[in-house]
């Protein structure tokens, strides 16, 4: 929908006949994939706005508890109803998006950088370094990611940073693996040999000649990874291993709402929906990125 209306306004300067013609063309061009990519972008934009300036999207306070408005079903006043403290659920979700997004983005950045370094070094040098590093990731890989995150969160205690750390660590192995295989295919290229021949240092080769080739797989992985990381983070909160803040994150809200399912389904349903949409959106975008960055196409 938004594509269509945007195109009309931007084409306002064109003569009417031409406009109509273009509009027809555009309409035909709007395919299912474009629609869901746009929808994903719109949803993420909405989350970005709510994470940065939540007060634009609601006039309620996320911490105002109201004993006279407990467990109210969705209404015009409270779009998504109220929770078990009488807080406006929409407001709590909007304010809670900051923590979820922050967790996803930061943990993906940490995991991505660590995975990149590991993969780069292992793939470039090969031999004993490769063997050692890859066996290390093998060990990490034998433990399922979520379980690893749970173990770390339990062992070092659930502060926000620890949760991020736990999730980052659990995502390192897969990233390191992919980067390593990319690096291996790159390091045998002619231009790398040429660089070696003129005496360029290892560091220079890695940074100048190999790293650029790793960006596109890394970008795809991190985009999809944001969704998975947020899911892992909400999962930890759900299990009671997250950080309980004044403004609950989505996972904690979902977990709290679960016990109210039979009397107030909306407390669990909407955080669940927000999380699902977020993960789907990031996955769709990641997939689209992969298609676009694929050199074979």
């Amino acid at each position: 929908m938004s594509i269509v209306s945007n195109s009309i306004s931007s084409d306002a300067a064109l003569p009417l006949a031409a406009q109509r013609k273009r509009r027809k063309l555009r309409l035909r061009k709007v395919t299912f994939p474009q629609l869901y990519i746009t929808a994903s972008l719109v949803y993420l934009l909405f989350l970005l706005v709510s994470a940065i300036t939540p007060q634009l999207l609601t006039h309620y306070s996320p911490t105002a508890m109201n004993a006279s408005e407990l467990l109210q079903s969705p209404s015009l006043q409270h779009w998504l109803g109220t929770d078990h403290f009488g807080r406006d659920l929409w407001t709590v979700l909007v304010y809670g998006s900051r923590q979820s997004l922050l967790l996803g983005v930061v943990s993906v950045l940490i995991g991505g950088i660590a995975g990149l370094l590991l993969g780069l070094v292992a793939g470039y040098f090969g031999g004993i370094v490769d063997t050692l590093l890859m066996r290390l990731t093998d060990i990490l890989m034998t433990i399922p990611g979520t379980l690893l995150a749970i173990v770390i969160a339990v062992a070092i205690g659930p502060t926000f940073f620890n949760v991020i750390l736990a999730i980052s660590i659990s995502t390192i192995p897969s990233k390191a693996r992919v980067i390593r295989s990319t690096v291996i295919s790159l390091r045998s290229r002619m231009y790398v040999d040429a660089a070696k021949a003129i005496g360029t240092s290892h560091l220079q080769i890695m940074l100048r000649h190999i790293l650029p080739g790793c960006w596109s797989p890394l970008l795809v992985m991190t985009t999809i990874g944001v969704g998975t990381s947020i899911l892992a983070g909400t999962g930890l909160s759900f299990l009671g291993l997250g950080v309980i803040k004044e403004i609950p994150d989505w996972g904690y809200l979902l977990s709290e709402g679960r016990s109210y399912m039979t009397v107030a389904w909306w407390i669990a349903a909407f955080p669940g929906l927000f999380i699902t949409l977020l993960v789907v959106a990031f996955n769709l975008l990641g997939d689209e990125l992969r298609d676009r960055l694929d050199p074979k196409k």
Partner: peptide, 9 residues
């Protein structure tokens, strides 16, 4: 913890 959340506020 719910009680504590209200008390915190």
């Amino acid at each position: 913890l719910d009680l504590l959340a209200v008390v915190t506020q």
